[in-house]
């Protein structure tokens, strides 16, 4: 690892993003708009006293799912362009280490994800009065860790796509099952045993579990820390797999 090369890659990816202000606006604004939709969707629900609003549960999970989905898409397409434009092959003839490249990407996109989740979390708290036990800062932390997961999966999946159209098709394959099985729609202990077993090994499940810990407890719990460590470990494994798809010598 060479910090200067990693930093240069981080700066370069951010410069590429900056060249596309419309994408930045979409990344920052769309989650808040969708949160508003969810808020109004449950506006008229009648709740027995003491039961938390559905918005507090669903909205909270959306805060973490957005950066995951968006960063997966943005990363897989940016990396695919890098592969198809010849710049990747060129970079790999320079002294750059594969890790510098991958971590440079991960750093740049997680900065973007942090901005996105700060904006969305701010709106959720201040505009829609989201009410949970735990600290909003922890919610942002889970969102950022989860977005790095999206970046890592995007880097890996880009190796299996040859066109941008294919890259987008990986979203239903990689992302949607995790959203379906993470406990957002049906609590995991109410799933049938096969789905529950699958759910138990999907990374997003751990992030959602961490969120539920934050929602229910005023302080960080050890279960939440464990969840985050598991997600971080999965990120490292996925990045290692992604580095195997970067070949300096090809046929």
């Amino acid at each position: 690892m060479n910090w200067r090369m990693m930093w240069a890659t981080n700066v370069r990816v951010l410069q590429q993003l900056r060249a596309d202000p419309r994408s930045i606006a979409l990344i920052l604004v769309v989650p808040s708009v969708l949160l508003a939709v969810v808020y109004w969707l449950y506006q008229n629900e009648k709740l027995p006293p003491g039961v938390p609003r559905t918005f507090d549960r669903v909205g909270l999970m959306m805060l973490v799912i957005f950066p995951f989905v968006v960063m997966f898409l943005v990363t897989s397409i940016t990396m695919l362009r890098e592969r198809t434009s010849g710049t990747l092959e060129r970079l790999l003839t320079t002294p750059i280490h594969k890790g510098d490249l991958l971590f440079g990407y991960a750093l740049a996109f997680s900065l973007m994800a942090a901005l996105q989740s700060l904006a969305a979390t701010g709106v959720a708290y201040w505009v829609f009065g989201m009410n949970i036990q735990g600290n909003a800062g922890l919610v942002v932390l889970v969102a950022v860790v989860n977005s790095v997961l999206g970046v890592a999966l995007g880097l890996l999946c880009s190796a299996f796509a040859t066109t941008e159209f294919q890259a987008v098709q990986f979203m239903p394959v990689v992302v949607v099952p995790q959203i379906l099985l993470c406990g957002l729609f049906v609590a995991r202990d109410q799933m049938n045993s096969v789905l529950e077993a699958i759910s138990n090994v999907l990374p997003l499940t751990f992030s959602v579990d961490a969120l539920q810990q934050i929602a229910q407890h005023a302080d960080a719990t050890s279960a939440m820390v464990t969840d985050l460590v598991v997600v971080a470990a999965i990120v490292v494994v996925v990045l290692l797999l992604a580095s195997l798809t970067l070949r300096r010598r090809t046929a």
């Binding site: 890659t9 700066v11 370069r12 410069q15 590429q16 060249a19 434009s85 010849g86 970079l91």
Partner: peptide, 15 residues
Amino acid sequence: SVYRDLTVLDNIRYF
């Protein structure tokens, strides 16, 4: 093989 969305200088500086 350069980044189309970067400026001339940013491309050269990166490499």
